[in-house]
Simulated scan of single mutants.
Amino acid sequence: MIKVIIADDQEIIREGIKYLIEQDPEIEVLGVAGNGSEALELCETIKPDVVLMDIVMPEVSGVESTLLIKEKYPDIKVIILTTFNHDENISKALENGADGYILKDIKPKELILAVKSAASGLRVLHKDAFPSIVKKVSDQRKMSLIQKDELTNLLTPREIEIINLVVDGKDNRDIANSLFISEGTVRNTISLILKKLNLRDRIQLAVYAVKNDIG
């Protein structure tokens, strides 16, 4: 059973989210909070697996609360669930240790999947938020620690082509259609790339690619 806490300053939102995700028999909401401070207190007593965290709340914001929770309980997964798709909010939340950032227009089944994915250790990010992450890294590009020619030797032309499509925010189906290959081939290739570069997921891959000017 995945234990969840919902933090949102609007009761109707909290109850709506609770109702939706508890339609899945593997998820149980053990507490709700009206601000970031209450969320931290619930984490201390309940020790949930996942916290669904709004950003704009009184007293302590979701971004601040994420930092406090992750500092004390790094194993608790925090997903930012908000209506705001601002570059600064996204980057700050992820810097503070958030395990995901999704928008409230997400479909119920996708929300349930996001909770399960985070609980299993995967990072989740709303498709509309992905370009913001890449843009911010691009704007703040640092000197690469690895020479570009070394990366070119490490990666095949097809792998670099797929990386560029990941940076563009394309999902596996889009990439497969663009390159006229199967989705399975795309998944396998991305897994191989992650292993080669010692990265965890496609978000890290996109950030890494922009920082190192892969393309």
Results as ranks from 00 to 15, higher is better:
Glu183Cys: 13
Ile146Ala: 03
Asp105Ile: 13
Ile27Leu: 05
Gly169Trp: 05
Lys116Met: 04
Leu113Met: 08
Val210Asn: 03
Asp9His: 03
Ile203Glu: 10
Leu199Arg: 07
Ala176Cys: 10
Glu150Tyr: 07
Asn153Met: 02
Leu165Ile: 00
Ser91Ile: 15
Lys142Leu: 14
Phe130Trp: 03
Arg173Glu: 09
Glu150Val: 08
Ile55Trp: 09
Asp87Cys: 05
Asp128Glu: 14
Leu194Arg: 07
Leu155Tyr: 02
Glu150Ser: 06
Pro25Trp: 11
Ile5Arg: 02
Ile27Pro: 08
Leu81Asn: 08
Pro108Met: 11
Asn89Ser: 08
Lys195Glu: 01
Val115Tyr: 09
Ser65Ala: 12
Asp105Trp: 11
Thr66Met: 13
Asp75Arg: 12
Thr45Cys: 02
Ala209Gln: 00
Asn212Pro: 04
Ile6Ser: 00
Asp8Thr: 03
Glu88Leu: 07
Asp171Asn: 15
Ser182Tyr: 00
Thr66Trp: 14
Asp213Cys: 00
Asp87Ser: 12
Arg187Ser: 15
Leu194Ile: 08
Asn198Gly: 04
Ala98His: 04
Ser117Val: 09
Asn188Met: 14
Tyr19Gln: 09
Thr156Lys: 14
Pro25His: 12
Val63Thr: 04
Leu113Phe: 12
Val51Thr: 00
Lys18Phe: 08
Ser178Thr: 13
Lys18Gln: 14
Glu71Ile: 07
Asp99Thr: 00
Thr66Ser: 10
Val63Phe: 01
Lys142Trp: 08
Ser191Ala: 14
Ile162Lys: 01
Tyr208Phe: 11
Val207Lys: 01
Ile90Thr: 04
Lys148Asp: 10
Ser61His: 03
Ser117Tyr: 12
Pro25Cys: 07
Ala39Asp: 02
Leu165Met: 03
Lys148Pro: 04
Lys136Arg: 12
Gly16Arg: 09
Glu26Asn: 11
Gln140Thr: 11
Ile12Phe: 08
Leu81Pro: 00
Ile76Glu: 06
Val63Pro: 03
Leu67Ile: 07
Thr189Ala: 00
Ala7Gln: 03
Ile190Pro: 10
Phe130Asn: 01
Ala129Ser: 14
Val124Gln: 05
Asn35Arg: 03
Asp75Glu: 15
Ile90His: 04
Lys107Trp: 12
Ile6Arg: 00
Gln23Arg: 15
Gly169Lys: 02
Leu145Phe: 14
His126Pro: 07
Ile190Thr: 06
Asp201Lys: 09
Lys70Thr: 08
Asn188Val: 07
Ile112Tyr: 08
Glu22Pro: 06
Glu41Gly: 02
Arg123Ser: 12
Lys135Arg: 06
Asp75Tyr: 13
Thr83Phe: 10
Met1Asn: 14
Ser120Pro: 05
Thr66Glu: 13
Asn177Ser: 15
Ala93Lys: 05
Lys47Cys: 11
Asp49Asn: 15
